[in-house]
Simulated scan of single mutants.
Amino acid sequence: MKWGRKSMLVAAAAAMLATAACGSKAGDSGAPANEAGGAAKPGNAILATLGEGNDNLQGKKIALIMQFNEGAFSAQYVAGVKEQVESLGGTLQVQAAGNNLADMASKLDAAVNGGFDGILTDHGTAEALEAGVKKAVDKGIPVVAFDANLNVPGVTVLQQSDEEMSKQLLEKMKEDIGGKGNIVKVWVAGFAPMERRQISYKAFMDANPDIKEIAHFGTADKPALDTQNQMEAILKQYPNEGDISAVWASWDEFAKGATRAIQQAGRNEIKVYGIDMSDEDLQLIQDENSPWVASIAVDPKDIGRVQTRYLYQKLHGDQTDEKVVLEAVMVTRDALPKDKKINTTELGEYIEGWGKSEQGIADWMGRSDK
């Protein structure tokens, strides 16, 4: 995903990227999910379980096909899928395509023909996924997608409330900078959530002429490192205090890179606002010397849990909505404890609505509050 002059090239290079996320490397070639997400630590999570009389759903084999598995966000998302699949008595295999859409389509085809009972997809484009998803549906294999603009009858698509997330974050930034100033935008085209976030960004900028965008960039290729490098160049171009008021980062990988560049330059008067949240992000936000002061997000583990629940509803024979919107919450440094560091498992103690979503828990399911 690229941005500005350079970014446009990367958007093309990413060849129709499909969305935003974050993290470390994912399991490939059927690698178990725990290799990607690490040991699941449910904390106070709410997990669906198989209700009485649903023994026929035990032992289901689930495939998770990912466009990429980069960053802590993706690792935590995979961990959420894994713990929910296992709580429902199934097994999970993860296939990550390294941001190669052709490879993602190939892995999807392999899953359709590989004896899986259900398929989850993470990101991707309609062009890359539609043929494989239709094959799955024709074979009676249920599919639930996350952050892809798919429109295939019988398929449920999950997405975050991207336009609203973007709007709320921009309003928070506006409040903090006093309604005026110069900002840097980090964004990339070609991903469904990014495109939705851009809608709110454009409307906001049109409505706030005293806030000026002085630079924009972004890429999906090593996003945190590329952002750091490009932000360092922009800080040299605008060297004086007051030249830049804030950075609006449409993905937490972008926010991490911008934060590191600003810290290293000693320019912490510049504030960073991000979208999405992981344990790594939270550590940066809690640092009182960090420019990253707020982020809006859905718990990535909850995304994985909810997506899995809808897949199991389909396996149960339930009718499910075509689109499910996951509501986000704002996380600000001011709301976090000053006397200790916390992780996202503990974040729900301080941020209402974090980490305990009950979306997708059907009446026939049991539940386990961990």
Rank of each mutant, 00 (worst) to 15 (best):
Phe191Met: 10
Ala192Gly: 12
Ala192Leu: 08
Ala192Arg: 10
Ala192Asn: 14
Pro193Val: 11
Pro193Thr: 14
Pro193Phe: 09
Met194Val: 02
Met194Phe: 05
Met194Leu: 15
Met194Lys: 02
Met194Asp: 12
Met194His: 14
Met194Gly: 15
Met194Gln: 13
Glu195Cys: 03
Glu195Phe: 06
Glu195Tyr: 07
Arg196Ser: 13
Arg196Trp: 06
Arg196Thr: 11
Arg197Thr: 11
Arg197Gln: 11
Gln198Thr: 11
Ile199Met: 11
Ile199Trp: 03
Ile199Arg: 13
Ile199Phe: 04
Ile199Thr: 14
Ser200Val: 10
Ser200Thr: 09
Ser200Ala: 15
Tyr201Ile: 01
Tyr201Arg: 01
Tyr201Glu: 04
Lys202Phe: 04
Lys202Ser: 09
Lys202His: 07
Ala203His: 06
Ala203Cys: 08
Ala203Val: 04
Ala203Ile: 02
Phe204Leu: 12
Met205Gln: 10
Met205Gly: 00
Met205Pro: 03
Met205Asn: 04
Met205Thr: 04
Met205Leu: 14
Asp206Phe: 04
Asp206Trp: 00
Asp206Ala: 15
Asp206Asn: 13
Asp206Gly: 09
Ala207His: 12
Ala207Asn: 13
Ala207Asp: 11
Ala207Phe: 08
Asn208Leu: 09
Asn208Ala: 11
Asn208Tyr: 06
Asn208Gln: 08
Pro209Leu: 15
Pro209Met: 15
Pro209Val: 15
Asp210Cys: 06
Asp210Gln: 15
Asp210Trp: 08
Asp210Phe: 06
Ile211Gly: 03
Ile211Met: 05
Lys212Tyr: 04
Lys212Gln: 14
Lys212Pro: 07
Lys212Ala: 08
Lys212His: 12
Lys212Ser: 08
Glu213Ser: 13
Glu213His: 00
Glu213Asp: 13
Ile214Phe: 07
Ile214Ser: 09
Ile214His: 08
Ile214Asp: 12
Ala215Lys: 14
Ala215His: 12
Ala215Val: 11
Ala215Cys: 11
His216Arg: 12
His216Phe: 11
Phe217His: 07
Phe217Trp: 13
Phe217Thr: 02
Gly218Tyr: 02
Gly218Pro: 06
Gly218Ile: 04
Gly218Trp: 03
Thr219Lys: 03
Thr219Met: 00
Thr219Tyr: 00
Ala220Ile: 02
Ala220Glu: 02
Ala220Ser: 10
Ala220Leu: 10
Ala220Arg: 04
Asp221Trp: 02
Asp221Leu: 14
Asp221Tyr: 05
Lys222Gly: 05
Lys222His: 07
Lys222Ala: 09
Pro223Ile: 01
Pro223Val: 01
Ala224Lys: 02
Leu225Thr: 14
Leu225Pro: 00
Leu225Phe: 07
Leu225Asp: 11
Leu225Gln: 14
Asp226Ser: 11
Asp226Val: 12
Asp226Gln: 10
Asp226Pro: 02
Asp226Lys: 11
Asp226Tyr: 09
Asp226Arg: 05
Thr227Trp: 02
Thr227Cys: 04
Thr227Val: 09
Thr227Asp: 01
Thr227Phe: 03
Gln228Thr: 06
Gln228Tyr: 07
Gln228Ile: 03
Gln228Gly: 05
Asn229Arg: 07
Asn229Thr: 03
Gln230Arg: 10
Gln230Glu: 07
Gln230Gly: 05
Met231Gln: 00
Met231Tyr: 01
Met231Leu: 00
